[in-house]
Amino acid sequence: MKTKEIQKETILLVGASGATGMKLVEELLHRGQNVKVIVRSPEKLPESWKSNKNLKIISASILELTDFEMRAYVTGCQAIVSCLGHNMTLKGIYGQPQKLVTDVTRRLCKAIEVNNSKKPTKFVLMNTTGNRNRDLNEPISLRQKCVIALLRLLLPPHVDNEKAADYLRTKIGQNNQLIEWVAVRPDGLINEEEVTAYEIHASPTRSAIFAAGKVSRINVAHFMAALINDATLWNTWKGQMPVIYSKVSVD
Rank of each mutant, 00 (worst) to 15 (best):
N34L: 14
K36D: 08
V220A: 08
M88S: 10
V101S: 12
D160A: 00
Q78C: 11
K118M: 06
S141A: 09
A16R: 00
R185E: 04
K44D: 00
N137D: 15
S203T: 13
P156N: 13
K145G: 06
R106K: 14
K247T: 10
V39K: 04
L28H: 08
L63M: 08
L45Q: 01
K118A: 11
M22H: 05
N137K: 14
I57S: 01
I140L: 10
A19Y: 10
N54P: 02
N54S: 14
T128I: 09
D187F: 05
Q78R: 15
I58H: 03
V215M: 02
L24A: 03
I148S: 10
G173L: 06
G239Y: 01
K44H: 09
M224L: 04
S141N: 08
A19I: 11
L55G: 07
V74A: 13
L29F: 07
T232A: 10
W237R: 02
N87E: 12
D67F: 10
V159G: 09
D103I: 06
Q174R: 14
A208F: 10
R107A: 10
L155T: 09
H222A: 15
S48Q: 12
I6A: 13
A226T: 13
S216D: 08
K53T: 13
K110R: 14
Y245T: 07
E193N: 15
D230M: 09
I190C: 07
D166W: 05
E5D: 10
T66Q: 03
Y198K: 07
V114G: 05
Q174I: 06
K163W: 01
N137A: 11
D251N: 13
E69K: 12
I190R: 03
V81R: 05
Q240V: 01
T128L: 04
I179A: 04
L45E: 00
L153C: 11
A183K: 09
A79R: 05
K50L: 08
C146G: 06
L12R: 09
R31E: 12
H222I: 01
T75A: 15
L178E: 11
G239Q: 05
M126Y: 00
E194F: 12
C109L: 04
L227T: 04
V37A: 05
R143M: 10
W181K: 12
K8T: 11
I200Y: 00
Q177T: 13
L178T: 11
V248G: 04
T129G: 06
V114N: 12
M241Y: 00
K23N: 14
K118I: 13
V74C: 07
V184S: 02
E27G: 02
Q174S: 14
G15L: 02
G173K: 09
A79P: 03
E47T: 13
C83F: 04
I244Y: 08
R106P: 00
N131I: 14
A164G: 11
E47D: 15
I172R: 10
R107F: 05
S246P: 06
W181C: 04
W181D: 05
A231I: 08
I244E: 05
N175S: 10
H30Y: 13
K110L: 15
K119P: 01
L84M: 11
R206I: 07
L168V: 01
S17L: 08
R132K: 08
A225M: 09
S249I: 13
L84N: 12
Q7K: 14
W181S: 03
A164W: 10
E199S: 13
T232Q: 15
E5P: 11
A197Y: 02
H158V: 15
V220M: 06
C77D: 02
T20I: 12
K56D: 02
A164D: 02
